[in-house]
Each structure stands twice: as C-alpha cells, then as structure tokens.
Nucleic acid binder design. Structure first.
Lengths: 150, 150
DNA sequence: TGCTAGTTGCAACCGAGTCGCATCAGGCAC
DNA sequence: GTGCCTGATGCGACTCGGTTGCAACTAGCA
C-alpha cells in the first residue's frame, strides 16, 4: 500500500490557478511540500518543511492555506486514530478514496483501496438518499508484523 | 436511523464493576448521562449534564472518565467531520459498528448499519493481515432534505 | 507604473485536553 | 461499624493545535 502515487508536480498550483486564486511565494512553498510529501504531514511538519523553501512562511499562513485547500476539496484531513496526540494530518485528495489503517503498536500507517468501499458508499447514497462529499474510514488495530508480537 | 437503541441502564457501570474498577459518585453521574443520552455529546455537554446530577463533577474528571471508558473499549470517539469546531463526541459502543453521516448544511447526524461495512472490514483483516480493534467511518455530505435546497 | 483587493506576519488569543498536587472517599479487612 | 490504603477527585496552572485582528505588503490587472 504505497503512499500517494506520484502526481504531476504543480498540480495543486494549477488547480488553484484555474479557480482564479492568487499565487504567492508562501503558497507555492506550502503546495510544493504537499505535492512532494512521501508521508502524511501535520501542520507543524508542513510548516518546517515549507520554511526550508521560503523562510518567511508563518504558522498562520500554513493553517490558512490548509483551510483554503480543504474548502476547494483538494486535500483530505485525517486524524489517523490520534496515534500521536490530537492534531490532524493532511494529504492530497487523489482520484480514489482509500482506507487508512494505523497500527496501535508500531504506529505504521497503511493505505488500502477497495471496491467494497466504493460499493458501501454507493449503498449509503442510495439507501439514505445522502449525497456524499467527503468520506473518511480510519481503522486502528495491529498490522501483520505486530500481530504476533502483541 | 435512530440513535443508540435503549440499553439496560447501568450497563456501563456493571461493565466497570466486572473489571474491578472503583465506582464513585462522580463516575456514576457521568455514566448515567452517557447511558441516557439521546444524541452525541461532547465533553463540555457531558460535563454540564453530569453536574446537574452531581454538582461537584469537575471538567478533569469528565476527561479522565472518558479516557477510562475509551481504554476499556466501552465508548467510541467521533469527530463528526468537525461540523462544529475541533472537539470530539462520544457514544456508547454497541454490538455493531455503524457509519456516521453528517449533513454539511443542516448539521444533522445520521447513523447507518450495513452488512457491506462488515464485509469491508473482513476484507481488510484478510487482505492486509490486519487485526482491527476500532474502526470509524464518517461521511460528510447532504442529507435527503437538504439535497434539493443546497 | 499605479492601484486595489487579497494575502501575509505578528502577537494575542481561544478552547480542548492534560497534569501535579494536596485532599478526599470507596470499599476491603478486621 | 471502624480504620486504612490506594485510587479518584478538584483545582489551577499549563500545553498545544488552531484562529483572529490588524497594519504592512504584494500579485497581477488596467
């Protein structure tokens, strides 16, 4: 279950440009970090990495940019079963929703794409007459490696 | 999709008693509120309601009791898509997991039980060799009543 | 080149949740 | 019923993720 399959770099930027949203040096740095991330980042990690690209980036700009991206449905917000504190993690929204599994012992995060998940969402939309905008399935438990040990 | 089907009152209490956990006046008040709740409560609401039964209940006792119940797997922690702020909501864990749907327009929370959800969890356990302890599926979108209006 | 609306940094703030500590009380032994 | 000990409580101070008001700045269009 690899993390985000590599996407065209600058994809988030062009999404925002299409929507007529002003591009700034700071946003560029933050988006670049999101686009090249190989694991789920929280706001603090995102800030640190963005500051390496543009030292002027401020904490509040990171939060404001995350809110912007959320509003435009370009990122998903996760809490990964609160395996480390109360904060949130972010990832680019990709074409297909996936399940996040967090190992309660080693802390590893795994992802899983499933047709059954798609079917389940279809059932909710149909049976409940509910139009789904975002969905989040997070599972906590023990990964294959930790099952024996635990 | 009604909320928790009424359970034997005092069920949480007896669960804790079985595990040899000391019962106090304050815990009794908090458990009673949880058991009779007809909607999802956050810590602040839980505190207010518990204080009506026992005015001495303190904020930190509520949080400590919630942590206790979580540790014993007697309650689930939800964030209901952060429809109102960053806090968490709690509900008694029942026999079957259910999906939470939050309407982004009217704020209504709906619940849904599905065999497909059970099948999906089975698939995760089998295909990923992952032992599930807790799972949480939350969906944000528009309910039947708001779909037209939105 | 100038203008303006949108964006930023900063510092103060907010609210959920935690913690250390002195005090209190549940519930077991007798 | 009484005493005791350990675990639970209230309180206040604290942490930390996230937000906000405001003055200064700047993207990008005319």
């Amino acid at each position: 279950m690899p993390l985000p399959q590599t996407e065209i770099p600058g994809r988030l930027q062009s999404h925002l440009a299409e929507r007529g949203i002003r591009m700034t040096e700071q946003r560029r740095a933050i988006l670049r970090v999101m686009e090249t991330a190989t694991k789920h980042l929280d706001a603090a990690q995102l800030l640190r990495k963005a500051q390496k690209l543009d030292a002027s980036v401020d904490r509040s700009t990171v939060y404001r940019t995350l809110r912007l991206l959320k509003r435009h449905g370009l990122i998903d917000e996760l809490d990964l079963m609160h395996i480390n504190g109360e904060g949130h993690y972010y990832e680019r929204k990709l074409n297909r929703d996936h399940i996040h599994m967090a190992c309660l012992r080693c802390g590893k995060i795994m992802e899983f794409v499933s047709d059954i998940f798609e079917k389940l969402k279809g059932q909710v939309e149909k049976d409940c007459r509910f139009r789904i905008v975002v969905s989040r399935l997070e599972i906590g438990g023990y990964c294959a490696a930790c099952r024996g040990a635990e």
